[in-house]
Write a protein that binds this DNA or RNA. Structure first.
Lengths: 198, 198
DNA sequence: ATGACAAGTAAGCGGACGATTACATTATTT
DNA sequence: AAATAATGTAATCGTCCGCTTACTTGTCAT
């Protein structure tokens, strides 16, 4: 723990310090959500002084905004058919809870959902941009609503696994869960071929 | 605000006080999550002294456990066909974000997901019991996993609307969203009639 | 070499938190 | 009525929080 950002930090380097703070903040915000994260711990993990958070990011919420800025990457989904996209998204949903699979803004959003302060940033930096980006990949009618539902479903899997924590959703059940999740995603991505009854 | 539990509290009534604390705590935990909720505010809303939380519930976490105990009610879903269950669940998912539609343990769980302390209680009192109850209503193969995925999807809609807050998921879009959500739920509840390809 | 400024630090501010203490008040029992 | 227990209160403890201030230390242009 308390690892430095790069190799051996030069004695004084504002950019490196800023970056070390960002790295530590990413981890801490993801672990505990916005309110649960402590600026003292972030600074300690970054190996620098608390006051530098205020200096470089104005305040805690500024650091949060910086962490959340431009953190969306849906490029792995580009060019996939709806079928492949559904299964890729299922994999993403199931991987989201794996030990540490890096930084995940959706996890931060969920864990920060108790904080009114963080909500605004999340909505602005994560909500619409992410929906728009995914909607562009989906295309067709109601693409934005489909994208919103898709992202909701993916987030929901995380909630079911981690926040609610049912053992039926445990990692060992992935083989059973994946087809179910894929089917749900496919139902949203693909137009309903034929209504069941009525 | 700061309403008393019953009519006119008798000068001293431990049960009424306990209950007033529970009512206030429900509201506060739902509003701000476990960590964001303040025992001082809960006591003030209940119209009693902070110390009584410790006396009657041991500690904040004890009050949280009491709030979360036996709060599951899936009876409206009993006896429904998978089709009807899917649309009922979609309604539930969409209603979860309506102003104040009463106490909702799933919302509390999501808003408290940043707190390691609350997690344990949520998993024990909400996770498995809720999955088991819903699984009993679903029946068939992999009922527990289906139930887990269903609850995850329903929670996810809340996350998408409130935590992530995409405008494509706003309340005004319900007419577009409902069929999409229903389709997703149906895909989990009903066995896949015919695989698309392979 | 020496200013001038950037970068980093130590200490502390005021406030909120959960929890506890010692005490006052009311109800119940004998 | 007196004794005992139940109920409620005020005040405070220690801790953590985000943030700021006054200061020191390093870097670099001149």
């Amino acid at each position: 723990m308390s690892e430095r950002a790069g190799s051996k930090r030069k004695t004084r380097d504002a950019d490196a310090t800023r970056n070390a703070l960002l790295v530590a903040a990413r981890t801490e915000f993801q672990r505990a959500g916005y309110e649960g994260a402590s600026t003292r711990k972030i600074a300690a993990d970054a190996g620098c002084n608390i006051a530098l958070i205020s200096r470089y990011f104005g305040a805690k919420i500024g650091l949060f905004e910086a962490v959340m800025e431009g953190c969306i990457d849906l490029s792995p989904l580009a060019g996939l058919s709806p079928e492949d996209m559904a299964s890729s998204l299922a994999d993403i949903a199931l991987k989201k809870t794996d030990a540490q699979s890096g930084f995940d803004p959706l996890v931060v959003a969920i864990r920060s959902s108790g904080s009114a302060t963080a909500q605004e940033t999340i909505r602005k930096q994560l909500g619409d941009p992410m929906v728009d980006e995914l909607a562009a990949l989906i295309g067709g009618d109601d693409a934005k609503q489909k994208a919103g539902v898709i992202l909701s479903l993916v987030s929901g899997i995380y909630v079911g696994r981690v926040a609610i924590g049912a053992s039926a959703m445990a990692v060992g059940q992935d083989d059973v869960l994946r087809p179910l999740i894929t089917a749900a995603l496919r139902a949203v991505l693909l137009p309903v071929e034929d209504g069941a009854e009525e």
